[in-house]
């Protein structure tokens, strides 16, 4: 990266981070609303515990504070690519179950799917800026969803949305950490901290 490019890369990085934070916070708010609709539409108990669901990226992170910027981006990108597939499957299942009769759950699911796709693309841009490039997507065809009973399908969907809501919060924190350290810093604590104006 030429010397003249550094300030513009830093500005671009800062812009991508703050836009990413806003997108993630909006996504979280919409996923939270979607969860309420989903629980009600699917006749589930909101307090029901859902064990870890295979194929759903867990947001839980150990030693989160020690992660490098690039690692954060890679983890986020892998997760949102997985959610893109999972939400598409859920949308398909929902159409099979409820058809067009449902004017709320389907559109809400589709809207969140759109945001997840947009956020994945956003992460790819950030990775490009890290002069690292986003990893290619594994294989063209996503894995076929497991054969589940209707109730298991509903539980799985709940697990997906709950994890996505947690990921949205994690992504906000990850992007704040990234914004603190500027582009191209793989180690925590280095680089200049760019104060991020928080906008609602």
């Amino acid at each position: 990266m030429a010397a003249a490019d550094i300030p513009s890369a830093a500005l671009r990085h800062h812009d991508l981070c703050s836009r990413g934070i806003r997108l993630a916070r909006k996504m979280r708010s919409d996923v939270t609303d979607l969860l309420d609709i989903y629980v009600e539409r699917q006749g589930l108990d909101a307090s029901i515990s859902v064990a870890a669901v295979d194929g759903v990226p867990a947001a839980a992170a150990e030693r989160w504070a020690e992660q490098s910027g690039t690692q954060r981006l890679l983890d986020n990108l892998a997760a949102y690519r997985a959610f893109r597939t999972l939400l598409a499957q859920m949308l398909e299942e929902q159409r099979e179950q409820l058809g067009d009769a449902d004017a709320e759950l389907g559109p809400a699911l589709a809207a969140v799917l759109l945001q997840v796709s947009a956020f994945a693309y956003h992460l790819e841009e950030l990775l490009e800026l890290e002069s690292r490039g986003a990893p290619a997507e594994e294989g063209s065809e996503p894995p076929a969803p497991p054969r589940l009973s209707l109730f298991e399908q509903k539980l799985r969907g709940l697990g997906v949305l709950r994890e996505l809501a947690q990921w949205a919060v994690r992504s906000v924190r990850d992007l704040r950490q990234l914004a603190k350290h500027g582009p191209g810093t793989t180690l925590e604590g280095s680089g200049t901290a760019l104060g991020l104006p928080e906008s609602q």
Partner: peptide, 9 residues
């Protein structure tokens, strides 16, 4: 906290 952002209660 040993883990953050966990959905497990």
């Amino acid at each position: 906290y040993l883990q953050l952002f966990s959905t497990v209660k």
